[in-house]
Design a protein around this nucleic acid. Structure first.
Lengths: 213, 213
DNA sequence: TCCATTTTAGTCCGAATGGGCAATAATGCT
DNA sequence: AGCATTATTGCCCATTCGGACTAAAATGGA
């Protein structure tokens, strides 16, 4: 096995990627592949290939598959915070109902732009892996704290029927995510692209029309 | 329903499982594993082990991994039809609003008892595999046909705000499924078992209270 | 009784997986 | 200029995967 035209071992092709971008590219690819295949189903080689790299490079940057998963989740939280903050800036001065409507609108748009998010939640929320605990603590808890405060206010003001908060939170979040999480189903069943601007506003209208009346 | 003496043919399993049960056991295991790992992530060996068998036996009964998947889906549809039919029998004579409430109640209970269903939808509804097409045709289309008829009636009678039907369908289905699809998340974040009787009725109440008012 | 059929287990294979590791090119510090 | 660090590739490993194939055990029909 000696003779082959042994190509140089080291670091040959440094194509055009600016150095700092590699990590980011891997994280984006990881979110995509993890959301489509789940943790066990996702392969480091697929993720690397999606970013145009060799799989060992993923391990160099993130050590482990588990390490990559945690880094990708942290990245996802940052994306969500950045998106939601923008809506919050214009919403914070509004009266409670309009603030709620604004935040729902913002969240629906986030779901449309990052369907990976809800998909990963469904994937990882089973069994009793450490990943469920991590998600519950770092993503669910803060999110629900905000939402339940808003919902209590809306119930006090009589805009939505009084009801235990936790069921309501899950109803609203799932309703907001649905058409984007299931985008492939909608495409296959109706031939419609739910990520389009028209579909996003139609969905937002339907949801707000149902909840606030 | 096998009575004692007539053992069906074939080599007995090491664990002397009644022969007719093998297929059913594999299908149940397949639904469970497929829902937790997705199609690619699920291994025939895991499914076989969950049913207490060797992986070759799965291939004997269902030929292919794809064949097993289709058989499991057909089985799932039968389970759903059986469950929903029971609700429909008592609901069909009721006035539209109560019929709707009864069907929602029945569906929520189905989601609680078969969380695999919604999880599989999320898993398989991505990419453009043939499985998406199969699901859209065999599960989504008939389901939505029924639901949209009911919703149109409710809108005509002014019980829910007029709105395009498709967004509404996704809002309602996702809302009904959410706490059970995400059961692990709820357990990790709140320490609550959403499959319990109390949680099922609480969720049903919250959903109906939000939609019908 | 003997043989075809049915149902099970066991074995082997090529491909893919997560991980370990050495080689090497680029960069930056002194 | 020299050297440590960083970023990258290629290759190796044991394990597991889907699948193909074979062996065996039990039954029923001839």
């Amino acid at each position: 096995m000696s003779d082959a035209p042994t190509r140089p071992r080291g670091r040959p092709a440094r194509n055009d990627r600016p150095v700092g971008e590699t990590r980011e590219a891997i994280l984006a690819a990881a979110l995509d592949v993890f959301s489509r295949r789940g943790f066990e189903g996702a392969s480091l080689r697929d993720i690397a290939a999606a970013a145009g790299l060799e799989h060992s490079l993923v391990r160099y940057h993130f050590t482990d598959k588990a390490g990559l998963w945690r880094a990708a989740m942290t990245h996802l939280i940052a994306l969500m915070d950045a998106h939601m903050l923008e809506g919050w800036r214009t919403a914070r001065t509004l009266p409670a109902v309009d603030r709620f409507a604004m935040m729902v609108t913002t969240y629906v748009r986030y779901c449309a732009r990052h369907p990976e998010h809800a998909r990963i939640m469904v994937h990882e929320t089973m069994g009793d892996s450490d990943r469920v605990t991590w998600i519950a603590e770092h993503i669910i808890a803060p999110q629900h704290r905000n939402l339940s405060r808003m919902l209590e206010t809306l119930m006090d003001q009589g805009h939505i029927p009084r009801s235990p908060v936790r069921p309501l939170i899950y109803i609203l979040s799932a309703a907001a995510q649905a058409p984007f999480t299931l985008a492939g189903e909608v495409r296959a069943a109706y031939g419609v692209d739910t990520a389009s601007e028209a579909e996003i506003t139609a969905h937002t209208q339907a949801l707000l029309g149902l909840v606030l009346r």
